[in-house]
Each structure stands twice: as structure tokens, then as C-alpha cells.
Design a protein around this nucleic acid. Structure first.
Length: 592
RNA sequence: GGCUAUGUAGCUCAACUGGAUAGAGCACCUCACUACGGAUGAGGAGGUUCGGGGUUCGAAUCCCUGCAUGGUCACCA
């Protein structure tokens, strides 16, 4: 609609001032709430062509638009702002179109569609998932869904960091001190069990360092010479040499971890189309690095290590392969990227959902891919997000302040349960139904809380406040949806026909305007890779509906046409709420 | 120290990318259920948008500068 109006404005300007102006010079925006109107034209940029005062310019354009555009009913000018009001008929017909559109808000596939691979989660296999992973998972999943809604072809993937020194640490500690403990024997979730031995390794390592320092070594020497770390390094080399015993242990312990992760992913509601394992890609990376040496873009040093000199690009020397020939993080990332493009040659964009602590890493990665001659290097994008802090500061595993993902989800469930019990609205639900509702509400609260914040900003997670369910929260929106459903349940046939009404009130108008915005919101969220855009919009919609609900009778409305209009508005609001929340990975209940 | 991000009400976050009197929620103070769900709504109070310059019709937004906070500069991942 604004596009149509833009060209009308251009037309009018041409007639008035004999000037052709580009679209970008026509600034249309939603009229602010405290002013009268639907759409506002900013006239300041037009003064150069009108050569009269802002007020006069607004007046002239306003008069011309009322004459030229049939749905522009009236206007007013405040300072340099021309506020335009549309006819009720215009908005009613907009509502009718919305009601008749399948998958309203979503953009069908077409010429603009891209093939996009979104990587997210990608944990290490040496410890369980925590709060930081939750933000990552929710963000990656939601952005994927948003891109799909924009008509793109999306594949969700992760690369599992299943090899490296970290997993060797867990393996070694388990081998030495584990006494064959298994998830079955201990009753521990697999990822938790492996994490336990990672912590055990760290403890022993610390003790050895302390002992060496006491015997006169420097801290640096102690860290390098502690027997247990040397053993771990040896194990990594054995692993790379495919030592059968080490590989067997490795496969067993990783298997435990994957089982544990699967449980967590399932509960979080995230999924993947394909999994990559670094154990399968680091060799490709090594080959790439070697070929880079041959091509002269990388350099081999005397000790055998391989580097890339990035000083001309304003960065440092970057290690790509250790002197003992083992791979580093960067090595395998190069290999993984190459493999992905081989798997999906039509790929247009590769998105990495990874925290901003790795901004530098990805800058370097993309640069290296370019140096290796991959023209698609410029299509790689680092979806960087801020860390999650606790009121006590950073999460630190050593200080035991890590918020475990499974524990947190349990807590959310319990809170939702307690809240519902307090409201006393559980009548008629079986225990099973009630539990699934609590899960929906608890997860809704958690997901909405984490996604409503702009991804690139660091966020504070206050356990006490985050589980709040009043105000700007997931359950508030879920409640609004349930309430609408409750109204709709009471009418026999849901009518999608928009009746002929002579006028609409301010609440109806505002809601239709908001509903009308939904497609633009999805587009904006896609362009910015920001679920927060969706979250804030859905909140505003729910809030506005609640105001409408208080002001306007629906079922008891005497005028049958007005009643139908309100029912359609209600129906569409519920649809858009459900649709928007789905993009965030949040389900909405019909009753709660 | 270099590079990089962030700084908005007591707290947690918005602000359509340069537009009007900077908006919400929480907390605090009022008020509203014999109409459809009170996990709600209406109102009040709360601001030098970190400080200082600049650009212009107009700045939270852009530029410069200072301050604060986080991240990062590993033969860790």
C-alpha cells in the first residue's frame, strides 16, 4: 500500500512543482499515535522543490492527494509533517484481503529466493549445553525459520566439534579414574557424564601445575610439562594416527554425548537437516592448507608449522597447522566450509551463528577462504551475537555459575506449573494435557525472553526476572491468543467474510494497521537476521488487542456487521500471533 | 596497548535506520471485573539518550574526541 502511495505522491509532486523525485526522497512513515492520521509524509526534504514554507508545502500536497487518491480521506499538517487519513473502506478492504490470504505474511519462493545454509549450535563434545548454547540454538533456529518465511531455501546444520584436545582430556580422565562408569551405571545423562570427567581432568591438571610450581618451575613451564597434559597431547596424536583403542574409546564417549544432546535439542524444539563432524572435515582442511602452501598464499616454517601472514590485511600471523602436524580450529573450519559448498553447489549463502567472542576468527576465516581462491568466500556471513551474562557477571565453570540448559528448562516448567496452580485455571485438563501446557508456557517464557533482545547486544539473564510471566513476556502473548480462541469458540461458524460497515473505530483501525504491517515485519527480520523484530511486533499486536478487547464488545455487540468485523479482526490477530510466535519457535495454546 | 562492539527511566529492553513531545515491561502509587478469560486494561510518577565538540531545517541515531564496560589479539576451541 505504501508503494502505491509513493507513486501517487510522486505524481502529485510532478504536477505541483514539475519535478521528478526518486522513491528514496519520498519519506512515508506510520503516523505517531498522538497525531491524527494513518500515514505521514515528511515534507522537509521537499522544500527545495516547493520553494514555500513547510506548512504551505504540506497543505498543497495534502490537498492534491485528497483529490488524486480516492482512499485518502483527509489530512492535517503539523510543522513539517503531513498526516494523511485513509477511509474506513480502505482499511476494511485491507482486512478482507488479509483474511483471504493463505500463509499471510510469508513471501512465496521466487526470483529473490536464495539457497542458505545456517549453522548453529555446534557444541564441543566435552561438556553439556548451557545458557549460552540456548541463546545460540534459539537464534539459529529462529533465523532459519524467518528466512524460510521470506521465501528462501534453508538448510539447518551444525558442525560437531568431536575431535581435538578437549575431548582427549575427558577421555583420558575417564580412562584413568572412571572405573568404567557409564550413563547406564551412573544414571547420568551422557553429556553430563563426559562433562564430569572434563572437570576431573582440569582438577588433576591444576594440582600437577601447583606441585611443579612448588618444586621451582615457572607457571609457564608447569603448564607445559604437567604429565597429564602431555598424556592428553599424546592421545590426540594417537587419535590423528587412528590408533584403534583411542578411536574406540572416542566413539563410545561421543556416543554418550550425542544421546544427551539429542534429548536437550528435542526439548528445545530445534532440529538440523544435516550434521557435520570435524573428524570428517579436518583432513580436508589439512589438504587445503597444504595446497595453500604450494600456491604460495601460506608459509611453512622451519619447525614444520604452517602460517598465513595477514599483516597486509591489518591482522597478525595466523597459525593453520601445528608443528607436530595436528590441526587447529581454523584448519577444520576451512575444510568444513569447502565440504559444505561441495555438498550443495547451488548454495548462495553460508551463515555461521556463533558468539561475538569469535568475531576475529570469522574475519580471518573468510579472508583465508578468499585467499584460497573460493569466490563464494564473500557469501559467508557471521551471525554474531552477544554473550549472556548473569547478575553475578560472566558464567564461569570454575566458579560453578554455569546455568545448565536442562536444569533451566526444568525450572521454567516448574515455574509455569506453580503460576498456573496459583491462577487456578486447570479445570478439565488431564494431567498429561496440563504438563504439556506447562512445558509450552515455560519454554515460551524462556524463548521469548531470549529472542526479544537484539542479537548483537549482550544480554543479562536474571533467573528471577526471566521466569516472570507478566508484562512483556511469552505467556502474556500466549494468554492473549488463548483469550481470542476462547471468544471464537463461542461462535458457531467462524466467518471470514468481512461485512459492509460504514465506519471503524480507533481500536479496530489500529489493529488492522498492525496486521497490515506483518509482511514488512517478516521482511525486515529477514534482512536483519533478527528474531527480535518479530518478537517486538507480536508483543505490540497482543497488547493492542488487549486494549481493543477491553474497549469493544464482541459477542454481545448488537450490530451484526460490527460484530462480524470484530470477529474477523480477532481471528486474524490470533493467526498472526500464532504465526509470528512460530517463527520464534514458540507454540501458543488454545486455552491456559 | 591495537582492533572491535556496546553505553537510553532505579532495573530489563524498544525507538520503523536522520524526523514530531525518546516509548514499553518490571518495581512504586491510583483506578476498573452482575460484557465475551484480571497471566488483563486505564492513569500517575520516573530521562542532560555516558561527557564534550561538530555536521543541518532536525541527532539517541552520522563525524571527531574523551570516559566506562565487554570481547579479541594463543602451536585453546
Amino acid at each position: 500500500m505504501s508503494n502505491v502511495l509513493v507513486s501517487s505522491v510522486q505524481q502529485v509532486l510532478k504536477e505541483l512543482y514539475a519535478q521528478d523525485l526518486s522513491e528514496s526522497q519520498i519519506q512515508l512513515q506510520k503516523t505517531r499515535k498522538d497525531f491524527d492520521g494513518d500515514v505521514t509524509l515528511v515534507v522537509f526534504p521537499l522544500l527545495r522543490v516547493s520553494k514555500v514554507s513547510p506548512e504551505q508545502t504540506g497543505q498543497q500536497i495534502g490537498e492534491a492527494l485528497v483529490n488524486a487518491v480516492d482512499y485518502v480521506e483527509s489530512f492535517n499538517v503539523v510543522k513539517g509533517f503531513l498526516n494523511l487519513s485513509f477511509t474506513a473502506g480502505y482499511w476494511v478492504s485491507r482486512l478482507a484481503e488479509i483474511a483471504q490470504t493463505d500463509n499471510y505474511g510469508q513471501r512465496p519462493k521466487g526470483g529473490h529466493s536464495r539457497n542458505v545454509m545456517v549453522e548453529y549450535s555446534s557444541p564441543n563434545t566435552n561438556k553439556p549445553l548451557h545458557l549460552g548454547h540456548i541463546r545460540n540454538n534459539l537464534l539459529g533456529y529462529s533465523v532459519s525459520e524467518i528466512l524460510k518465511a521470506n521465501g528462501h531455501e534453508v538448510k539447518k546444520v551444525q558442525v560437531i566439534n568431536d575431535r581435538g584436545i578437549h575431548i582427549c582430556k575427558s577421555m583420558l580422565a575417564w580412562q584413568k579414574y572412571g572405573e568404567n562408569e557409564t550413563p547406564q551405571s551412573s544414571g547420568l545423562k551422557g553429556d553430563k557424564l563426559v562433562g564430569k570427567y572434563y572437570v576431573e581432568f582440569d582438577k588433576r591438571y591444576k594440582a600437577e601445575i601447583a606441585a611443579l610450581i612448588a618444586s621451582g618451575k615457572t607457571e609457564e613451564e608447569a603448564k607445559a610439562e604437567a604429565p597429564i597434559i602431555i598424556e592428553a597431547r599424546e592421545m590426540l596424536q594417537k587419535w590423528e594416527a587412528e590408533d584403534p583403542e583411542v578411536r574406540e574409546l572416542w566413539a563410545k564417549m561421543n556416543g554418550w554425548v550425542y544421546n544427551g544432546f539429542d534429548t536437550t535439542y528435542k526439548r528445545l524444539g530445534v532440529d538440523f537437516d544435516k550434521l557435520y563432524y570435524e573428524s570428517n572435515t579436518y583432513l580436508i582442511g589439512k589438504e587445503l592448507v597444504e595446497s595453500g602452501v604450494e600456491e604460495g598464499v601460506f608459509q611453512k616454517r622451519e619447525d614444520g608449522s604452517i602460517w598465513c601472514d595477514l599483516t597486509e590485511d591489518g591482522m597478525d600471523q595466523k597459525l593453520l597447522l601445528r608443528s607436530d602436524g595436528t590441526a587447529v580450529y581454523m584448519t577444520q573450519d576451512l575444510g568444513t566450509a569447502k565440504l559444505r559448498y561441495e555438498d550443495w553447489p547451488a548454495l548462495n549463502q553460508l551463515i555461521y551463528t556463533v558468539g561475538n567472542e569469535q568475531d576475529y576468527h570469522f574475519k580471518v576465516l573468510f579472508l583465508l577462504l578468499g585467499k584460497l581462491g573460493f569466490e563464494w568466500a564473500s557469501n559467508c556471513y557471521h551471525l554474531s551475537y552477544g554473550m549472556v551474562d548473569l547478575p553475578s557477571g560472566k558464567m564461569k565453570s570454575r566458579e560453578g555459575t554455569v546455568v545448565d540448559a536442562d536444569d533451566l528448562m526444568d525450572e521454567m516448567f516448574e515455574t509455569a506449573k506453580a503460576q498456573s496452580a496459583e491462577k487456578g485455571k486447570l479445570d478439565g485438563l488431564t494431567e498429561e494435557e496440563a504438563d504439556s501446557l506447562f512445558e509450552m508456557l515455560g519454554m515460551g517464557a524462556l524463548k521469548y525472553f531470549m529472542l526479544k533482545v537484539d542479537p548483537k547486544k549482550r544480554m543479562l539473564f536474571n533467573p528471577a526476572e526471566s521466569i516472570d510471566m507478566q508484562g512483556n513476556t511469552g505467556p502474556f502473548i500466549q494468554y492473549t491468543h488463548a483469550r481470542i480462541k476462547s471468544v471464537l469458540r463461542k461462535v458457531e461458524n467462524t466467518v471470514k467474510e468481512v461485512p459492509a460497515v460504514t465506519g471503524i473505530n480507533v481500536n479496530e483501525r489500529t489493529l488492522i494497521q498492525l496486521l497490515n504491517q506483518y509482511p514488512e515485519i517478516i521482511q525486515l527480520a529477514g534482512e536483519e537476521y533478527s528474531p527480535a523484530v518479530i518478537a517486538n511486533y507480536v508483543y505490540e499486536l497482543a497488547k493492542e488487542y488487549n486494549t481493543f478487547y477491553h474497549e469493544c464488545p464482541i459477542l454481545i455487540e448488537a450490530d451484526e456487521n460490527v460484530k462480524q468485523l470484530r470477529l474477523v479482526i480477532s481471528q486474524m490477530t490470533a493467526n498472526v500471533i500464532a504465526s509470528g510466535m512460530k517463527l520464534l519457535g514458540v507454540q501458543v495454546p488454545d486455552r491456559m
